[in-house]
Simulated scan of single mutants.
Amino acid sequence: MTDLQPARTRPPRSHGAVPKPVSPFDDEAAAVANLDPALLAALRRAATAAAADGVEIRVNGGWRSPEYQDWLFTEAISTYGSEAEASRWVATPDTSAHVAGQAVDLGPPAATPWLSEHGAAYGLCQIYRNEPWHYELRPEAVEHGCPPMYADPTEDPRMRR
C-alpha cells in the first residue's frame, strides 16, 4: 500500500471481526454464534472444563464472512510480500475453514498448554504447527487423538481447491 492509497477498514463484528477476545459463550459475537454447532458445542464443553482447572479460553477468531476473510488475506499479502508467503498464515475465502464456521482461533497463550493436553478429549485439534491458536473439530480425536499437524496451511490439501 502506498501513502496515496487509503488504509482499508477492518470489516465490522457482524462479519466475524473480533477486535478484543470474547468468551466462547458470547452469542452476540458473530464469530462465535455462526460457528458450526458441533464445533461450538465442543468448544463450550472444553472451555467449561478448562475453567474448572483455572484456565480461561477466549475466542480470538471464529466464523468469518468471505469479505472479512478476503480482507485478512489481502492484509497478509501486504504484510508478507506475496500470495505464496501470505498463504502460510491466511487462507483465501474459498478455502478458509473459518468462512465455513469450522475453525476457531483460541487464546490467550496461557490456554495453549491446556488445549494441547486436553483438547483432543473434546475433538478440538490444532491443525497447523505454525498456528498454535487455530483449532478445528475432529470428532475421531476423542477416541484416537488428534491427527498429525501440517507444518502450515500450504501443506493442507483442502487449500488446493
Rank of each mutant, 00 (worst) to 15 (best):
R45N: 12
L106G: 10
V142D: 05
V142L: 06
P66W: 13
T95E: 08
L43D: 05
L106K: 06
C125M: 10
V22R: 12
A86V: 03
E117A: 13
W89Q: 12
A86S: 04
A33W: 13
D105A: 04
E131F: 13
Y135M: 09
N60F: 09
V32Y: 07
A100I: 00
L43S: 14
H144V: 11
R88K: 08
T48E: 15
A46V: 15
A111E: 09
A103G: 01
Y128C: 12
A31S: 13
R58Y: 12
D94M: 02
A100K: 00
A91K: 00
D27C: 01
G61W: 01
P108E: 02
A121N: 10
S116C: 09
V32T: 05
S78Q: 09
W63P: 00
T74E: 08
G101Y: 01
L35E: 01
P113A: 00
D94I: 03
D70F: 03
L115R: 13
A30L: 07
A100D: 02
D36A: 04
A120W: 14
F25I: 05
S23W: 01
A97C: 05
C125V: 10
A100W: 01
L72W: 06
D27I: 01
I127K: 14
A100S: 00
E83L: 02
A111L: 10
E83K: 00
A46G: 15
V142G: 05
S65Q: 08
E83W: 07
L40H: 06
P132T: 11
E67D: 14
L115P: 11
Y135G: 03
L106P: 02
Q126I: 09
Y68H: 11
A52H: 15
A30Q: 08
A41D: 13
G123S: 14
A33G: 08
S96C: 06
V32M: 08
E85G: 00
P93W: 03
R129P: 04
S23V: 11
A141K: 12
N60E: 01
T112Y: 14
P24Y: 12
A42G: 14
E131T: 14
I77E: 13
H134K: 10
A52V: 13
P139G: 11
S23Q: 10
E131W: 13
D26A: 10
D26W: 04
P66Q: 13
F73I: 07
D94L: 02
V99C: 02
G101Q: 00
D53E: 15
A38Y: 00
A52Q: 15
S116H: 13
D70T: 05
E136C: 07
E131S: 14
W89H: 14
T112F: 14
A110E: 10
G107F: 03
A50P: 01
Y68K: 06
F25H: 13
A91Q: 07
T95W: 06
E28M: 08
V59K: 03
A50G: 15
T79I: 05
Q126V: 10
P93Y: 04
A50T: 15
V90P: 12
E75C: 07
S82E: 14
A97H: 06
W114E: 11
V22G: 11
V142Y: 07
D105Y: 01
L124W: 06
S65T: 11
E136M: 15
A50V: 04
D26V: 02
A30D: 09
Y128I: 05
E117K: 14
P113Y: 01
A97V: 03
